[in-house]
Simulated assay, not measured.
Amino acid sequence: MTFDAINFNEKLAKFNDHWSPRVIAEMNDYQFKLAKVEGAFIWHQHDDTDEVFIVINGTLNIEFRDGKVTLNAGEMYVVPKGVEHKPIANNECHIMLVEPRGVINTGESHTGENNTGESHTGENNTGESHTRESDTGQSRNKLTAKNDVWI
């Protein structure tokens, strides 16, 4: 066990890709992911889990088929499982997602930890290294991010 705090700004400085969440910590089977988002994502839903959006910097709109919610820095929203939604950020926005390990950002189903056909070796927030093996599933959407990428 280490006693180092996880600094969101330091982690966010390590990548530039939009709509590609990066794992910064795990708690039980849940992952805490940081993402930079800008523009519109796709309509999607997660059939098996709720999805938590926490805005760190900027403004995020989450559209639903029958309404929308606007989140500013310091605000969060829980999208219930099975609810179709479309996140939109008019300007770059930094968010945290909290979701079970293995959730695909576009709501697609898969059988492995990573839908890119790649393995990932990294370090978690305790300083322990870990490796996740992947399946060989194909991405069905160009916005499907590599899963389980640690920073």
Rank of each mutant, 00 (worst) to 15 (best):
Q138K: 08
Q45A: 04
A13G: 06
I95G: 02
L12D: 00
P100F: 10
N91D: 14
H130N: 10
E63L: 11
G112S: 15
N9M: 11
N141P: 04
L97R: 03
G137R: 11
L34N: 01
T70P: 14
P21E: 12
D47W: 07
G39L: 03
Q31M: 14
T2E: 13
V69R: 13
V69G: 10
T144H: 15
L71F: 07
E99C: 09
T121A: 13
A40Y: 10
D148W: 12
N61D: 03
P100D: 03
I42Y: 04
Y77N: 02
V98W: 11
M1P: 01
G58Q: 00
K146V: 04
W19P: 00
I54H: 03
R101E: 05
V37H: 12
A5C: 06
L143W: 06
Q31D: 15
E63V: 03
G112A: 14
E10Y: 04
N114A: 08
R101V: 08
T49F: 09
W19H: 03
N28G: 08
S119I: 01
S109V: 02
G82F: 10
N9Q: 09
M76F: 15
G74F: 08
T59F: 07
V78N: 09
E118Q: 14
S139T: 01
H120V: 02
N16V: 02
F41W: 09
T116L: 14
H130R: 15
Q138W: 07
D66Q: 08
R22I: 00
Q31A: 15
Q138I: 03
E99M: 13
V23K: 07
F53V: 01
F15Q: 05
D47F: 06
G122C: 09
D48A: 07
I62A: 14
S109F: 06
I95W: 02
S109W: 06
F8M: 01
N105H: 08
E113S: 14
E63S: 11
A40N: 13
M1I: 02
A35S: 12
P100V: 01
N90E: 04
V83Q: 11
V52W: 13
T49L: 08
L12M: 15
I24T: 08
E92C: 01
